[in-house]
Structure formats: C-alpha cells, structure tokens
C-alpha cells in the first residue's frame, strides 16, 4: 500500500491557492526529493501530511488513513524552523523524545551526537543555528519511523556535515520506510534520491526517477531544475 497518497489535494490561504489539485503517490522504500522554488507549496504539502493544516478540498492519506494520532506515530517530521524547546539540554530533549515516541533509538542518537561533537549537557539556547539544526535532525532521524518528512534538512549546515547527514539518511535506510526531503539544494541531494517531484505555484510540474531524468535528458536533476524554473 502507498505510504502517502494525495487525491486532488487543494489548500487555499484566503484567496491564495498554495496547492492546486495535487495527486501523487509515494511507495515504501523510496527517498523522494520534493523540489521547487521558494513559495511553491513544499512546506504546505508537508504540513498537510502532518495534519498541521487541513485540506481546503481533496484528501491526503498516510498509510490509507487521514492524518491523526496513528500517522504521528508513523511519521518523523523535521519542520523548517526550530521546534525544540531552547531551554532544554540535549539530554533532556532525548528523554522528552523517548517519552513521546516509542520508536526513538537513544543509542543511535548518542552515536550521531558524539560523531558530530555535540555535548549532551549543552542547552539548545547556547547553540549556533547550525548546531540546533543538527540536534533537531538527529532527534528526527533516530526514530525508527515509517515515513520521514524532512523540510529543508540541510539548509543551514556546512558541506561536511551535509555529507554526514545524507550518509546517515542512506545508512539508516530501512527498505520499508520512505523519506521525503524538501530542498532547493538539489546538487547536494540528488545522488541519494530515488525520485523527484518538481512543484511550482502549487502544481506538480514533473514526477520522475532520477535515473530516468539523467537517461532521457542527459543532464543532472540540478541542471533540469535550473532549466524548468529559469527566472
């Protein structure tokens, strides 16, 4: 069964149409890039999948059901901004995640923290923007979830850490789970993606496997993106 399915999904903010009759299906075991320029509807789509927004019309289904308690158990979500309590230490955050999520693997989290040289006793407030992002991503990736929704996961971190994070995503690979990565840093992520979804002005412009794009167009996804979204 599809992990995520949208049928004619539409979201309007007043008179602004953020998503316009989107239909798509994401199968298990795929790493999918949700790619589009700023304001194209990427975050809106991810928020709808999380049940943080409700559709204006159409539907979005996670494992066949509308977003709700079950889907929150199933989805591990990285928002596009800091959502962790800044007064907590990393240790407290891990306890918090363990209380909240039965699938949180504290050993995996510890391993990644030490690899990136992050002190468990440090408070989030005292951290740089990049370190906060790392901590947040480590917490999200340490869950054994069925669907990871990562909204701009690598925007604020340095290239070496970017490589480490992408390797973590590949290394934690579970054949049953899927990952959706929204980003505009395409060149950095395209080698780890199975499929891409190009989205613009609330509409899907293209869905394809990365291999097909390279085979049929003789160019990288990054190059194709620049062509499709030329300003």
């Amino acid at each position: 069964m599809a992990i995520l399915k949208c049928n004619e999904l539409t979201k309007q903010y007043g008179s602004v149409c953020a998503l316009d009759h989107i239909s798509l299906t994401i199968e298990p075991g795929r790493i999918v890039g949700l790619l589009g320029p700023n304001g194209s509807g990427k975050t809106t789509l991810i928020k709808l999948a999380n049940g943080l927004l409700t559709p204006s019309s159409g539907e979005i289904l996670i494992n066949g059901d509308k977003p709700g308690v079950e889907s929150k158990r199933f989805i591990s979500y990285l928002p596009d901004r800091t959502c962790i309590a800044t007064w907590m230490t990393v240790k407290q955050l891990m306890d918090f995640y363990m209380d909240f999520y039965g699938d949180f693997d504290v050993d995996a989290a510890r391993q990644m923290l030490s690899r990136l040289g992050i002190d468990e006793k440090q408070r989030v407030r005292q951290m740089s923007k990049g370190t906060r992002e790392k901590v947040q991503l480590i917490l999200v990736m340490s869950r054994k979830a069925g669907l990871y929704l990562l909204d701009e996961p690598i925007g604020g971190v340095d290239p070496a850490t970017r490589d480490y994070i992408l390797n973590t995503i590949i290394g934690n690979y579970n054949p049953e789970a899927s990952v959706i990565i929204s980003t505009h840093l395409i060149a950095d992520v395209e080698n780890v993606l199975d499929d891409v979804i190009f989205i613009n002005c609330g509409q899907i412009v293209l869905t394809s496997s990365v291999d097909d794009i390279r085979e049929n167009n003789g160019k990288s996804v990054d190059a194709l993106f620049r062509e499709v979204f030329k300003c």
Partner: peptide, 17 residues
C-alpha cells in the same frame, strides 16, 4: 549494499540496481 551505497554517497536502491 548499504555499506557500498554509503561509501559512494548514493541511494541504496541505485547501488542495488
């Protein structure tokens, strides 16, 4: 497959293929 995918920095399905 997983180790080779991580080393090459590619998707495991790609390495598998």
């Amino acid at each position: 497959v997983r180790d080779m995918a991580v080393e090459a920095g590619v998707n495991p399905n790609t390495m598998q293929r």
